[in-house]
Amino acid sequence: MAMNNDNILEVRDLRISFGTYAGEVQAVRGVSFDLRRRETLAIVGESGSGKSVTAKSLMRLLPEANTIFKGGEAIFDGRDLLKLSEKQMQRVRGPKIAMVFQDPMTSLDPTMKVGNQISESLRKHLGMSRAKARERSVELLKLVGIPNAEERVKQYPHQFSGGMRQRVVIAIALACEPQILIADEPTTALDVTIQAQILDLLRELQEKIGTSVILITHDLGVVASVADRIAVMYAGKIVEMGTVRETFYDPQMPYTWGLLASIPLPTADRSQDLIPIPGSPPDMSDPPKGCPFTARCPYAMRVCPTEFPEYTTFSAEHKAACWLHHPMAPNVEPPARVGGTR
């Protein structure tokens, strides 16, 4: 398979299920996307849309006991990540692909000094000596903006605040200067003021180190400020994908409209109410055959529940899966509150 030179990662038709006692839950149902060098790709969706599962599967960090890999590939460095052995994968995690998790309060080992937690991967992957790794941990803490780093490396996680811990987690992730950084809801558990700091930090470090970032989030505000491109996920599928500009100003799929319409904007006219999306996402142990958004879609047509729509391409980057773009479909205007027009 010929890989586009701009792409550092190509995911094709990824399908992942979980075995539960209630039956098989299809978390990811055929997801495809590319990640370009030095870009930030945001994957947006509600909880349960499969965005975190997609991210964790690239790192092969899903629990072995009940994860069922149904198919697809993820080509990185000419190799399919999903087919690497555990040993090979250990050499990818850290130096090639690193990850930042959602909850900084629980993602550091409470019984180990933070310096040692950073040194661990330095020593394992870069073969640094204890002293060298220690020195480098201090540098890394400084890099992520932790004051008094020489003292801080000797402290335990409980001596750090939530925002500081997330900085430590980022330092751990960036220790070996990975080519890809996967950030799984990195700001969700933080205070709003801290969120902005962490996002700024991520963006700044990305420029310095030149990694590509996959940013998993449910917060469109976060996306707008840092991402280059957006993939909107719903019920285990990508339903719309495009540059941030295209997706925000010219969204093409009623679910994206719904997402955008439900963000409160300070500038919005008070007469334009927030429009919530009615209902809730489908049960993924028995996902709908057609477009999964049908049940909540105000523009639903007879064809919608019968078959998942093809992707319609609008520009080099922008595509969406919606039956409304079929030439036989009626012309529909997005709600006034959503920026763009068709």
């Binding site: 009615p278 209902g279 809730s280 489908p282 049960d283 049908t294 049940a295 909540r296 879609c297 523009y299 639903a300 047509m301 007879r302 064809v303 919608c304 019968t306 093809e310 992707y311 319609t312 391409t313 039956w323 773009h325 079929h326 030439p327 036989m328 479909a329 009626p330």
Partner: peptide
Amino acid sequence: TRHRELDPRLFESVEIDAYEG
């Protein structure tokens, strides 16, 4: 994007109860 020809009745709008599920 090229689209298949489909029965036009398929594109009639329907009322679906979002809370059905």
